[in-house]
């Protein structure tokens, strides 16, 4: 694992169009029941254009962005040794159906602890107007040789 990737910024992802049925599907999968994620009328009454995604929905964009790091030969990450350590989502506003989102990943930290490597990356997710929606921060642990 190459510590020199700290600070590296990867190219923006192709735009991801958030579909209403995808939001409903994801909401069902995380056992959501609040109508704001299912019923557009409820979402509109609360001031949103369409159904509101559960807070972890951004993982769809994050996973795609993280693949760039894991597949980056210079990073030298063995994906079979990767474990998810921490996850955070910081919102400017929630993700809503109809959003066209773009993600830009920055490797913010690479640390070596007891033979393992910890890589922290911020995936900044913005809408079609370029305004920030949410930043997903993920720390992955790459286990060393045992």
């Amino acid at each position: 694992m190459n510590p020199a990737i700290q600070g590296r910024v990867y190219p923006p992802s192709a735009p991801y169009l958030v579909g209403r049925e995808k939001v409903r599907e994801f909401a069902r999968a995380v056992f959501a029941t609040d109508p704001i994620s299912f019923d557009p009328d409820v979402a509109v009454a609360a001031g949103y254009r369409d159904v509101v995604a559960p807070p972890t929905f951004g993982v769809l964009l994050q996973e795609h962005a993280l693949k760039q790091v894991i597949n980056d030969e210079e990073a030298g990450i063995d994906f079979t040794r990767v474990v998810h350590g921490d996850q955070r989502f910081r919102f400017t506003r929630p993700i809503v159906a109809g959003d066209e989102l773009t993600a830009i990943l920055t490797v913010t930290s690479v640390k070596s602890i007891g033979g393992h490597s910890m890589v922290t990356a911020d995936t900044a997710i913005s809408d079609g107007a370029g305004d920030h929606v949410v930043t997903a921060t993920s720390t992955i642990v790459v286990r060393g040789d045992e």
């Binding site: 959501a32 609040d34 807070p55 350590g85 955070r88 919102f91």
Partner: peptide, 17 residues
């Protein structure tokens, strides 16, 4: 979310696995 009244009310959410 159910207590707060909807997913739109979440400002920040973090966990460690």
């Amino acid at each position: 979310i159910d207590w707060a009244g909807g997913a739109h009310r979440v400002r920040d959410y973090q966990v460690r696995f």
